[in-house]
Amino acid sequence: MSETSAAPRRFPIGLTIATLIAFSILCGLGSWQLQRRHWKEDVLARLEALKTAPAQPLVQVLTADTKPESLAWTRVSVDCGDVGGQPLPLVYGVRDGDVVWRAQSPCAVLAGPYNMILVDRGVVPSLTGQVAPSPRAFDAPRRVVGVLSPIQQLGGDRAKVLERFADRKPAPLVLMAEQETPAPAGITPAPLPAEISNRHLECALTWFGLAVTLLFIYAAMLWRRLRP
Score class of each variant (00 low, 15 high):
Pro172Ser: 10
Val147Glu: 03
Ala49Leu: 12
Gly84Tyr: 00
Gly209Ala: 04
Thr52Leu: 11
Ser134Pro: 03
Ala194Arg: 13
Ser2Tyr: 11
Gln130Trp: 06
Gly85Asn: 08
Ala55Glu: 03
Thr63Glu: 12
Arg95Gln: 13
Ser77Pro: 04
Val145Leu: 12
Pro141Gln: 07
Arg227Trp: 09
Ala220Thr: 09
Ala108Asn: 07
Leu201Trp: 03
Thr181Met: 05
Leu15Glu: 14
Pro87Met: 05
Ile13Val: 15
Pro141Gly: 07
Gly93Arg: 03
Pro184Asp: 03
Pro87Thr: 03
Ala49Cys: 06
Gln153Trp: 14
Cys27Leu: 12
Thr188Glu: 15
Tyr92His: 14
Ile117Asp: 00
Arg121Gln: 02
Pro184Ile: 01
Leu118Tyr: 05
Gly122Arg: 06
Pro68Ala: 11
Pro170Arg: 00
Gln33Cys: 12
Leu15Trp: 07
Ala140Cys: 01
Gly186Leu: 05
Thr128Asp: 05
Val76Ser: 00
Trp223Glu: 09
Gln56Leu: 11
Pro141Thr: 04
Thr19Cys: 15
Thr74Ile: 10
Trp32Arg: 08
Val145Cys: 07
Thr128Glu: 12
Trp101His: 14
Ser70Lys: 14
Val131Ser: 14
Ala64Pro: 05
Thr181Cys: 01
Leu15Pro: 01
Gln104Val: 15
Leu127Thr: 04
Val131Met: 10
Val161Phe: 00
Arg224His: 15
Ser31Ala: 12
Tyr114Arg: 06
Met221Asn: 11
Ala18Asp: 09
Trp101Pro: 00
